[in-house]
Computed example of a mutant assay.
Amino acid sequence: MDASETVPATDARAEALVASYQRAGYARVAPAILQPAEPFLDLSGEDIRKRMFLTAAPGGDEDFCLRPDLTIPVSRDYLASPQAGRPAGFSYLGPVFRHRTDGPAEFLQAGIESFGRPDKAAADAEMLALGLEATAHYGLAQADIQIGDVALFSGLIAALDLPAAWKRRLVKDFNRKANLAQDLNRLTLGGANGRPEYQGVLAALAGSDPKGAHALVTDLLSIAGINAVGGRSVAEIADRFLEQSALGASTRLPKDVRGLIERFLTIKGDPDEAAAELRALAAEAGMAETLGPDLDVFESRAGFLAAQGVDLKRVSFSTAFGRGFDYYTGFVFELTDPTRTGDPLVAGGRYDGLLARLGSAEPIAAVGFAVWIERLAVYGGAR
């Protein structure tokens, strides 16, 4: 993993920040700027997908992109290294590329990615503490701290009596609340409403072997000369098409269960307050055993945050808070300064499922964060 990438001399504060991460044991790396596009198209989410800069290799066999973030590139390089599967931590500083209407498309990000640590709650707390060090390094003493936990919502949905396709759909909706509301309406009414033009094809695929159906749809798209639509790969188009087949079956969500989901998404407060309310909700819904392990991790993380010197009364937790990246599976956080801007200064979280989706034979625990250098640069000098 090459660490030869350089940044302008004017970013001495950013260099000093990453040097502190290196001293903390996070080796500096610099993944290639040009990356295969498919992992980002499949895994990042709608917001990143629509702002990527894409290009095709000669012959059109493979699409590439200018890296829109560094989590996936660092993860890919880790998996290709001799360290793959073993605990390892990396830091970085370099440009990323996204179309933006309010700033240049190329901008600097620093950050950390930590892989393979079994002590997940402690690793989560360390990421947030190191993120706070970044804001303090740039002269912001009291950043606002917003946290969430995607695993709690996933655990709630997993406990419901719904087909697997609907569970996947609702979890994916977590970062798109308008979609979630629409799908809850659709379920309350009893599954599919409306009859799309391709309903006959969906009906023919319903109940068929999933692998065979996926291969059939993929082949049909390839025969039609379709390589990508709206930034989605052929494989993702096939997945979405087959998902529609599964979702088309009549399924009804009782109103009290919908009410449970909506009530869950209103819980907020500091971690101690939220944990108590979540425990009460889980007990009332008969989900204490199902949600218990995720709540244990939540409370353990809060303990590690306190041990890191984070005042829990300053931490704002919401069950509805997410980060818009589809690969996050657990703890997520953002550090902001609302007196200047609502945009995050530092943001990150846990993405335990990403490395398996990038090709790892086994799941690998992973957590990290990115630092927006341009947003922090407006503050005073480093400590």
Rank of each mutant, 00 (worst) to 15 (best):
E133I: 00
I261D: 01
G381E: 15
E46C: 06
Q35H: 06
D69P: 00
V7L: 11
D337K: 09
P39Y: 02
F317A: 05
A12R: 14
E262K: 06
M287E: 09
F241L: 15
E284C: 04
G309V: 05
R49V: 09
Q308L: 00
A203Y: 03
Y78G: 05
F90I: 13
R383N: 12
A283G: 02
A164C: 07
S360C: 08
S318H: 10
D102R: 13
A283M: 10
A30T: 15
L152D: 04
G103N: 09
N227D: 14
K50L: 10
F153H: 06
A110H: 05
R168I: 09
A228I: 02
M52S: 05
D144Y: 00
Y327E: 05
G292A: 04
T101G: 10
L130I: 08
F153R: 03
R117H: 12
I145C: 10
L216G: 00
G212L: 13
A306H: 09
L170D: 00
L242K: 05
S222I: 01
F53A: 07
S4C: 01
Y351H: 12
L312F: 10
T188I: 03
K167E: 10
P73G: 07
F241R: 04
I157G: 04
Y328F: 14
A203Q: 14
R279E: 14
I267Y: 04
F321L: 15
R301D: 00
R23W: 01
A151L: 02
A134I: 02
L17T: 01
V29I: 15
V315I: 09
G190S: 11
E277V: 07
M287Q: 15
D239E: 14
L93M: 10
D144R: 15
A224V: 07
P8G: 13
P58R: 14
I157L: 11
K313I: 00
A181T: 07
A57I: 05
T319S: 15
G381D: 12
G230E: 11
A228T: 12
E289W: 08
Y379E: 04
L291T: 08
A143Y: 07
E113T: 11
G148E: 06
T336V: 13
P104R: 06
L312E: 08
L170S: 01
G286T: 10
A88E: 01
Q83F: 03
F321M: 14
I147R: 07
E38Q: 13
N175L: 03
L93C: 11
E15W: 00
G89N: 06
G116T: 11
A105G: 14
E15L: 15
L345I: 06
F115E: 03
I364K: 04
A181Q: 11
L358G: 08
D102P: 01
L247T: 10
S91Q: 08
A37F: 03
A246W: 04
I112P: 04
L253T: 10
R258P: 00
A9E: 15
T10M: 08
F64Q: 01
N179A: 13
V297L: 14
G207H: 12
A285C: 09
K211F: 00
P68L: 01
T218M: 12
